[in-house]
Amino acid sequence: MARITYVEHDGTEHIVEVKNGTSVMEGAIKNNVPGIDADCGGACACATCHVYVDAAWDGKTGAKSAMEESMLDFAENVEANSRLSCQIKVTDELDGLVVRLPESQH
């Protein structure tokens, strides 16, 4: 279990307990956090679950697959700390994770 803070583009914070083995995307969707669309449900097919991982967590959220890199490369407003949240698996080590959401996923 990890406590994850999702920060909407306007600064609104949502703090949610997310189960190990699920994804950071699922934690948002199952708790109705606005700002993550996840059109494809986690198939890494749409790039609508884009988040910015807080600097303190840099390097702790696992490596990007080639598919994720490739999808992110064409998403809007991508930064060095951009990730597709469906590809970040939740573990105890991510307890306290903070992710920020872009203004739009489309």
Binding site: A43, A45, C46, M67, S104
Partner: peptide, 19 residues
């Protein structure tokens, strides 16, 4: 309303991702 979207679809078969 939301911005209009381009329709899109996907399919996964074996190691193929069709978009």
């Amino acid at each position: 309303g939301p911005a209009p979207e381009v329709p899109w679809f996907w399919s996964d078969q074996y190691d193929l991702k069709l978009q």
